[in-house]
Protein backbone atom coordinates (compact mmCIF):
# COMPACT_ATOMS: atom_id res chain seq x y z
CA UNK A 1 0.00 0.00 0.00
CA UNK A 2 1.53 3.24 -1.12
CA UNK A 3 1.61 6.43 0.89
CA UNK A 4 -0.18 8.23 -1.93
CA UNK A 5 -2.80 5.52 -2.43
CA UNK A 6 -6.07 7.47 -2.60
CA UNK A 7 -8.10 4.38 -1.82
CA UNK A 8 -6.09 3.73 1.33
CA UNK A 9 -6.61 7.32 2.46
CA UNK A 10 -10.35 7.13 1.81
CA UNK A 11 -10.53 3.78 3.61
CA UNK A 12 -8.97 5.52 6.61
CA UNK A 13 -11.82 8.02 6.50
CA UNK A 14 -14.59 5.42 6.78
CA UNK A 15 -16.61 5.81 9.98
CA UNK A 16 -16.69 3.09 12.59
CA UNK A 17 -18.90 3.03 15.68
CA UNK A 18 -17.12 3.58 19.01
CA UNK A 19 -18.13 3.85 22.64
CA UNK A 20 -16.31 6.29 24.88
CA UNK A 21 -15.02 4.98 28.18
CA UNK A 22 -13.84 8.33 29.55
CA UNK A 23 -15.46 11.61 30.30
CA UNK A 24 -14.46 14.14 27.64
CA UNK A 25 -15.85 17.53 28.67
CA UNK A 26 -15.10 19.79 25.72
CA UNK A 27 -16.04 17.58 22.77
CA UNK A 28 -19.79 17.85 23.18
CA UNK A 29 -20.17 19.38 19.74
CA UNK A 30 -19.38 15.99 18.28
CA UNK A 31 -22.76 14.61 19.34
CA UNK A 32 -24.62 17.86 20.17
CA UNK A 33 -24.46 17.54 23.94
CA UNK A 34 -22.66 19.29 26.77
CA UNK A 35 -19.79 16.86 26.84
CA UNK A 36 -19.05 13.28 26.02
CA UNK A 37 -19.99 11.03 28.91
CA UNK A 38 -18.56 7.54 29.40
CA UNK A 39 -20.70 5.17 27.40
CA UNK A 40 -21.80 7.67 24.76
CA UNK A 41 -21.67 6.28 21.26
CA UNK A 42 -20.10 8.07 18.34
CA UNK A 43 -18.97 7.23 14.85
CA UNK A 44 -15.35 8.23 14.29
CA UNK A 45 -13.15 7.89 11.22
CA UNK A 46 -11.13 4.71 11.23
CA UNK A 47 -7.71 6.35 11.63
CA UNK A 48 -8.79 8.27 14.73
CA UNK A 49 -10.78 5.45 16.29
CA UNK A 50 -7.95 3.00 15.78
CA UNK A 51 -5.47 5.28 17.47
CA UNK A 52 -7.75 5.85 20.48
CA UNK A 53 -8.67 2.21 20.78
CA UNK A 54 -5.04 1.13 20.93
CA UNK A 55 -3.84 4.00 23.11
CA UNK A 56 -3.72 3.84 26.92
CA UNK A 57 -2.52 6.44 29.35
CA UNK A 58 -0.98 4.44 32.16
CA UNK A 59 -0.22 0.96 33.34
CA UNK A 60 -3.69 -0.43 33.92
CA UNK A 61 -5.86 2.35 32.50
CA UNK A 62 -8.41 1.47 29.89
CA UNK A 63 -8.17 2.90 26.39
CA UNK A 64 -10.32 6.02 25.93
CA UNK A 65 -12.84 4.21 23.77
CA UNK A 66 -13.82 0.76 22.57
CA UNK A 67 -14.35 -0.12 18.95
CA UNK A 68 -17.17 -2.25 17.63
CA UNK A 69 -17.54 -3.81 14.20
CA UNK A 70 -18.98 -1.34 11.70
CA UNK A 71 -22.49 -1.98 10.33
CA UNK A 72 -21.06 -3.18 7.02
CA UNK A 73 -19.62 -6.18 8.89
CA UNK A 74 -22.65 -6.80 11.10
CA UNK A 75 -24.06 -10.23 11.86
CA UNK A 76 -26.75 -9.78 9.22
CA UNK A 77 -24.30 -8.93 6.48
CA UNK A 78 -22.11 -11.85 7.50
CA UNK A 79 -25.08 -14.20 7.39
CA UNK A 80 -26.08 -12.90 3.96
CA UNK A 81 -22.52 -13.34 2.68
CA UNK A 82 -22.43 -16.85 4.06
CA UNK A 83 -25.66 -17.67 2.23
CA UNK A 84 -24.77 -16.24 -1.16
CA UNK A 85 -21.85 -13.86 -1.63
CA UNK A 86 -23.05 -12.82 -5.06
CA UNK A 87 -26.44 -11.61 -3.91
CA UNK A 88 -25.03 -8.89 -1.63
CA UNK A 89 -24.32 -5.47 -3.07
CA UNK A 90 -21.10 -4.79 -1.17
CA UNK A 91 -20.94 -1.20 -2.34
CA UNK A 92 -24.19 -0.43 -0.53
CA UNK A 93 -22.56 -1.65 2.69
CA UNK A 94 -19.39 0.34 2.18
CA UNK A 95 -17.51 1.56 -0.88
CA UNK A 96 -14.33 0.32 0.79
CA UNK A 97 -15.79 -2.88 2.17
CA UNK A 98 -12.69 -5.07 1.97
CA UNK A 99 -10.37 -2.25 2.97
CA UNK A 100 -12.33 -1.64 6.17
CA UNK A 101 -12.77 -5.37 6.74
CA UNK A 102 -9.05 -6.05 6.54
CA UNK A 103 -8.34 -3.26 9.01
CA UNK A 104 -10.95 -4.71 11.35
CA UNK A 105 -9.40 -8.14 11.05
CA UNK A 106 -6.12 -6.60 12.16
CA UNK A 107 -7.79 -5.25 15.28
CA UNK A 108 -10.19 -8.07 16.14
CA UNK A 109 -9.51 -11.76 16.35
CA UNK A 110 -12.35 -12.88 14.08
CA UNK A 111 -11.47 -16.15 12.42
CA UNK A 112 -14.92 -16.81 11.10
CA UNK A 113 -15.16 -13.36 9.58
CA UNK A 114 -11.82 -13.88 7.89
CA UNK A 115 -13.02 -17.15 6.37
CA UNK A 116 -16.28 -15.60 5.21
CA UNK A 117 -14.47 -12.68 3.62
CA UNK A 118 -12.05 -14.95 1.84
CA UNK A 119 -14.83 -17.06 0.41
CA UNK A 120 -16.81 -13.96 -0.56
CA UNK A 121 -13.87 -12.43 -2.37
CA UNK A 122 -13.04 -15.59 -4.27
CA UNK A 123 -16.60 -16.39 -5.31
CA UNK A 124 -17.27 -12.85 -6.41
CA UNK A 125 -13.91 -12.65 -8.20
CA UNK A 126 -15.07 -15.45 -10.50
CA UNK A 127 -18.05 -13.34 -11.53
CA UNK A 128 -15.94 -10.22 -11.81
CA UNK A 129 -13.60 -12.07 -14.15
CA UNK A 130 -16.48 -13.27 -16.27
CA UNK A 131 -17.93 -9.79 -16.54
CA UNK A 132 -14.51 -8.33 -17.30
CA UNK A 133 -14.26 -10.70 -20.24
CA UNK A 134 -17.79 -10.27 -21.53
CA UNK A 135 -18.12 -6.55 -20.87
CA UNK A 136 -17.74 -5.54 -24.49
CA UNK A 137 -19.63 -8.34 -26.16
CA UNK A 138 -22.80 -8.37 -24.13
CA UNK A 139 -22.83 -4.59 -23.81
CA UNK A 140 -23.75 -4.77 -20.13
CA UNK A 141 -27.32 -5.22 -19.12
CA UNK A 142 -29.79 -6.69 -16.71
CA UNK A 143 -28.41 -8.63 -13.84
CA UNK A 144 -24.81 -8.13 -14.90
CA UNK A 145 -25.01 -4.41 -14.59
CA UNK A 146 -26.73 -4.72 -11.25
CA UNK A 147 -23.87 -6.90 -10.05
CA UNK A 148 -21.18 -4.54 -11.27
CA UNK A 149 -22.83 -1.64 -9.50
CA UNK A 150 -22.52 -3.56 -6.23
CA UNK A 151 -18.74 -3.99 -6.47
CA UNK A 152 -16.58 -2.35 -3.84
CA UNK A 153 -13.33 -0.55 -4.69
CA UNK A 154 -11.14 -3.67 -4.53
CA UNK A 155 -13.42 -5.51 -6.89
CA UNK A 156 -13.66 -2.56 -9.22
CA UNK A 157 -9.88 -2.50 -9.42
CA UNK A 158 -9.88 -6.23 -10.12
CA UNK A 159 -12.48 -5.69 -12.84
CA UNK A 160 -10.36 -2.99 -14.43
CA UNK A 161 -7.24 -5.15 -14.39
CA UNK A 162 -9.03 -8.12 -15.86
CA UNK A 163 -10.69 -5.99 -18.48
CA UNK A 164 -7.46 -4.29 -19.47
CA UNK A 165 -5.80 -7.62 -20.18
CA UNK A 166 -8.69 -8.88 -22.27
CA UNK A 167 -8.93 -5.60 -24.11
CA UNK A 168 -5.20 -5.58 -24.85
CA UNK A 169 -5.35 -9.02 -26.44
CA UNK A 170 -8.47 -8.07 -28.37
CA UNK A 171 -6.91 -4.87 -29.66
CA UNK A 172 -3.86 -6.76 -30.81
CA UNK A 173 -6.01 -9.34 -32.61
CA UNK A 174 -7.94 -6.60 -34.39
CA UNK A 175 -4.74 -4.80 -35.37
CA UNK A 176 -3.28 -7.95 -36.88
CA UNK A 177 -6.32 -8.29 -39.10
CA UNK A 178 -6.05 -4.69 -40.26
CA UNK A 179 -2.34 -4.59 -41.05
Amino acid sequence: MSYYDVDAILTDGEKVPCRFELDVPYLGHLDNSNGLKPGSRLALPLWLAEMFALASAGEDSKPPLTLTLPPCLSEQVQAALKADPRAVALRDQSAYFYGVAVRMLDLFDERELSAILRRTFVVRAADVGLHARKAEESGLGGQGEEFLRGLDEWERRLFRRGHEGVRGAKEWTDNVKKS
Binding site: S114, L117, V122, A125, R157, L158, G162, G165, G168, A169
Partner: peptide, 25 residues
Protein backbone atom coordinates in the same frame (compact mmCIF):
# COMPACT_ATOMS: atom_id res chain seq x y z
CA UNK B 1 1.88 -16.89 -24.05
CA UNK B 2 -0.99 -14.70 -25.18
CA UNK B 3 -3.34 -16.23 -22.65
CA UNK B 4 -0.85 -15.43 -19.92
CA UNK B 5 -0.55 -11.84 -21.10
CA UNK B 6 -4.32 -11.59 -21.19
CA UNK B 7 -5.09 -12.90 -17.73
CA UNK B 8 -1.99 -11.79 -15.82
CA UNK B 9 -3.66 -8.72 -14.37
CA UNK B 10 -6.71 -10.61 -13.18
CA UNK B 11 -4.83 -13.57 -11.74
CA UNK B 12 -2.36 -11.45 -9.79
CA UNK B 13 -5.22 -9.24 -8.63
CA UNK B 14 -7.14 -12.18 -7.18
CA UNK B 15 -4.02 -13.60 -5.52
CA UNK B 16 -3.22 -10.21 -4.00
CA UNK B 17 -6.73 -9.83 -2.63
CA UNK B 18 -6.69 -13.27 -1.02
CA UNK B 19 -3.30 -12.53 0.47
CA UNK B 20 -4.43 -9.23 1.98
CA UNK B 21 -7.57 -10.76 3.48
CA UNK B 22 -5.59 -13.63 4.93
CA UNK B 23 -2.68 -11.48 6.12
CA UNK B 24 -3.88 -10.94 9.70
CA UNK B 25 -4.93 -14.57 10.11
Amino acid sequence: AMELAESRGFVTGVAEGIRKIGASA
